[in-house]
Amino acid sequence: MIGYVLEVAQAALALVLAPGLVGLVRWMKARLQNRRGAPAWQPYRELGKLFRKEVVVSSNASWLFRAAPFVVFASTVAVTFLVPILAVPLPFDGVGDLLVVVYLLLLGTFFLSLAGLDPGSPFGGMGASREMTVAALAEPTVALAIFALALSAGSTNLGQIVARTMTAPGAALSPGHLLAFAALFIVTLAETGRLPIDNPATHLELTMIHEAMILEYSGRYLALIEWAAAVKLLIFFSLLGNLFVPWGVSMALTPGTLVVAVASLLAKFVVLAGAVAVLETRIAKLRLFRVPELLSASFVLALLAVTSSFLLR
């Protein structure tokens, strides 16, 4: 019973924390640009405002345009039930493994891209085309990183991976793990639309990927999509944080360990957010046709990760 409660609590925590995480990255970036910046809780205000605004829908759009935000949001939230954020093992662990997580996120991307094409705006089409390109090219890296993790843990189920790494701490420092971490970090940047693949702060339509797709959205639809994007960032951060450095995740499900879990989760988030912020300050956006090169580099990393964990088993 406590497992189910925790499961819901974990999803709720993800939903609540996600906008703050985005705000944290933004705030850190502002400080690195020597600006005062908006506080980390600014995204909550923005979401709140969007939920209270009217929706304007293109006259060309069909039901799909109106349904897509809900599909995106639901599929992303569904993932939060499967990812180990606070504790393992949880009852829904067997419902979906890491492959399910990846394909659920692809489901959201698929519908968002279709929604980008729906109003017939050239920007939407451009965004959809680019988003699908990046998503497709990131896919092999993700699969291989999963493979590398699964090899040492003996399972693709997330709870298992976490539990296995905890019991055999040496695995966390194995070359396979480290390489897979690097590969997955690059994929995280690609999938969540961060620099150098996509610029979350751009205002120029021609350089956009994710933004271009959602140019037509407004009001509560936009809020759902933005929120889902924030949750996606949180999911990837938790994967990076908890799969590779599982310490802190509660296994005993007692109140004490849960408090530790929350604290360590926050610490991991701060570190990862800091890394992303520093990275985004340091590097410029890649040209779109350079992105595949970066992704193939991550692919090679992942392949090395798998072969090394294969051979070093």
Binding site: A30, R35, R36, G37, A38, Q42, R45, E46, K49, K53, V56, T202, H203, L204, E205, M208, E211, L215, E216, Y217, S218, L222
Partner: peptide, 17 residues
């Protein structure tokens, strides 16, 4: 730094207030 007041620029009027 207009962002400190929560003012940011967006690309589409659909997102704008």
């Amino acid at each position: 730094d207009s962002e400190r007041f929560g003012i940011h620029f967006v690309a589409s009027p659909r997102h704008a207030d």
